[in-house]
Design a protein around this nucleic acid. Structure first.
Length: 629
RNA sequence: GGACCUGUGGUGCAGCUAGGAGUGCACGCCGGCCUGUCAAGCCGGAGGUCGCGGGUUCAAAUCCCGUCAGGUCCGCCA
């Protein structure tokens, strides 16, 4: 079912023409725009035959579809009309006879009569039905994407995408930003995501790379005095695909000079709220702000879905003295799942398996039940005793717990009788991450539910702890430290906060940004903390560091993931649904067959020798003889 | 690199736990009937390498192994 946020076809009344533009060419009206007010008008329509309902040889109802919607045409000629034939229909708009209106159709009060039909293009039956009656296999949809795009869902999603991008652009223009394009053929920067390489024909053995983002280019624009830059930028990363990740994706990329973090956040907030406004009529709450520390503590993640509760409770203190070995750990986090005390043992086992997959040693569970001794006077006791004393915990782990420990657990989680408590003990990061993920899997509403909830996450740590205890940049190495923490750079780098911030929408990371370092001496200290020598730094980022010699303004910026933003505003759980021609999870395009082997001649011209041991080995080349040397 | 789910006429499913003839449902398709339908209706018909390969068995859509494709996730995504 379409969700509230979608720009549905044909439901906009008189707005139809404004949105669809003036019809021209072979037609003079759009199908979806016809209304009772058009009664008597001669019209010429073009489109696809969506459905034919035949009654005898001289009465057929033909539903004609174009991108604006559907209108019923009454046809009494014997033209051969089948599904997906492309036709031009000329006729007269008439009010439907009493009692035959179709309230499910925007054009349901009218029909086109006295139709002359011209078949512009015949069509084989499509390989899947284009109505919304059944989910169609993803591979089939992508193989015939040009047919999939005819469906209401894709029409609505792509038009919403256009509206959102337009709203973002208008917001940026209104705020004085200038769109500047940056190169797709860029240079390798050996940091961050795996890059797509493009071989150079003129310099055999050398490569361009496609940009993971225009990060360095936009900072150079700031050095160039552009002051306020934005771009709808294509970004390319050769990393494994997910529901929210494609090789290539679009970012609203922003950078501004002489600006504070608050300035950047205000600019981006304006843009994304404008985007939400064109997506639906719903009131969208202002963008909230949480510190990273607070988000990790309450939600166990740096991209919290704040549309629902079930926040993490800390049981570390409560169970410290319990003597239960499974719960003795630096950190114990729990969530309360309301009303789920009846969860079956096999379900609990599969949750435990899931917790292990996420890195936990195990999963503790407690069914919250009325305490036996108090069960009779529980009601009478209400209010006169501590909340916890009326409840007990049913769990193998709770069997030998002292009543005070049980009370502490109940109090810390706010448990009610009939709830299920789940807890993970372990290192702080593990306990938070596992419970944060289980919270999502057990309580998260569908992405389309309720108003969009944007939240800023601020005060990220400047460094993460690398595998060997060293500091690695949490954002990128040009991120400005929090001014209060600069003194800690040498003594305690892992506790230094940064002026980096993420924007999160309904639990999806929409993007991130930071205030950048623009002074060389501070940059050197950061490189030192990263154990990066001056020579290495020069080799990797030399051209940026060089640029900073010539007067770099203080600057900062942000990038918003447009595909994710549109998907959430469209109520889609997958960004493929808002991309016209996406790739499958294995990076293939079932329609074009990409990626494909190159002809030997093309490889030779690029100076490329393909190793036959790769995954392509064994696939027979196009021609006989192949390309074996 | 790894885990899990799915794969059955064109489409979506059921059948698989417990092996017994390609069995069933809905949609679509083809033909016929039908002058107010709108997911039209009624009648008839066609359409299958049960993803692919191997194994177990008298017998495999069903059990086992492998593989391919699609999906979800872990790793990865500064």
């Amino acid at each position: 079912m379409p969700t509230g946020g979608k720009a549905l076809t044909g439901d906009a009344g008189a707005a139809g023409e404004a949105r669809d533009g003036r019809p021209f060419g072979l037609r003079d009206h759009w199908c979806g725009e016809l209304r009772l007010a058009d009664e008597g008008a001669p019209v010429r329509l073009c489109g696809w035959v969506a459905r034919v309902r035949a009654h005898g040889s001289h009465l057929r109802f033909v539903d004609l579809r174009d991108r604006s919607g559907i209108v019923q045409c009454v046809v009494d000629t014997d033209a051969d009309l089948r599904s997906e034939y492309v036709v031009a229909i000329s006729g007269t708009v008439g009010a439907r006879p009493e009692g035959t209106s179709n309230p499910n159709l925007a054009t349901g009060d009218v029909e086109v009569r006295d139709c002359a039909v011209e078949v512009l293009s015949e069509a084989e039956p499509p390989p899947f039905q284009l109505d919304e009656r059944a989910e169609v296999d993803e591979a089939t949809r992508l193989r015939y994407r040009y047919l999939d795009l005819r469906r209401d869902r894709m029409v609505a999603n792509l038009r919403l995408r256009a509206s959102v991008m337009s709203a973002l652009r208008r917001s940026m223009e209104r705020q004085g930003f200038t769109e500047v394009e940056t190169p797709l053929l860029w240079t390798p920067t050996p940091e961050g995501a795996r890059e797509f390489a493009v071989p150079s024909r003129l310099h055999h053995g050398s490569f361009y790379v496609l940009p993971q983002s225009p990060q360095i280019a936009k900072q150079l624009l700031m050095v160039g005095g552009m002051d306020r830059y934005y771009q709808m930028a294509k970004c390319l990363r050769d990393e494994d695909l997910r529901a929210d990740r494609q090789f290539e994706f679009t970012q609203l990329d922003v950078e501004m000079s002489f600006a504070t973090q608050q300035d950047v956040m205000a600019v981006v907030s304006d843009a994304v709220l404008a985007a939400a406004a064109v997506a639906s009529d719903r009131e969208v709450p202002p963008v909230a702000t949480l510190t990273w520390q607070e988000s990790m503590e309450r939600y166990g993640t740096d991209k919290p879905d704040v549309r629902f509760g079930m926040e993490l409770a800390d049981l570390t203190g409560a169970v410290a003295a319990s003597g239960v070995a499974a719960l003795s750990a630096p950190c114990v986090k729990a969530i309360r799942v309301p009303g789920e005390a009846g969860t079956t043992r096999s379900r609990l086992d599969s949750l435990t398996a899931r917790a292990r997959q996420l890195g936990a040693k195990g999963l503790a569970w407690f069914r919250v039940v009325p305490a036996k001794a108090d069960s009779e006077d529980a009601g009478a006791a209400l209010g006169s005793r501590p909340l916890g004393s009326r409840l007990s915990l049913d769990s193998p782990l709770a069997r030998h717990m002292a009543p005070t420990v049980i009370d502490d657990i109940v109090t810390a989680t706010g448990a009610q009788a009939g709830d299920l408590l789940l807890a993970v003990a372990g290192p702080t990061a593990t306990a938070r991450a596992v419970m944060g993920q289980l919270r999502l899997e057990l309580g998260r509403p569908p992405l389309s539910e309720g108003a969009p909830r944007y939240v800023w996450i601020t005060d990220f740590p400047l460094f993460d702890e690398g595998p060997d205890g060293t500091a690695v940049p949490a954002h990128h190495p040009f991120t400005m430290p929090h001014p209060d923490d600069v003194v800690l750079l040498d003594s305690d780098p892992l506790s230094v906060r940064s002026q980096a911030y993420d924007l999160v929408l309904n639990g999806w990371e929409l993007g991130s940004g930071s205030i950048r370092i623009h002074r060389r001496e501070l940059q050197q200290r950061i490189f030192a903390a990263l154990k990066l020598s001056a020579e290495e730094a020069q080799a990797r980022f030399g051209f940026l560091l060089d640029a900073f010699r010539y007067g770099a303004p203080p600057h900062g910026g942000f990038a918003v993931g447009v595909d994710r933003l549109v998907a959430i505003l469209a109520g889609e759980e997958n960004i493929r649904e808002v991309i016209a021609f996406p790739k499958t999870q294995s990076g293939a395009d079932p329609m074009t067959g990409a990626p494909k082997e190159l002809a030997p001649g093309a490889l030779r011209e690029l100076g490329i020798l393909v190793g036959r041991a790769g995954p392509a080995a064994g696939r027979s080349p196009a021609g006989p003889g192949g390309s074996a040397p």
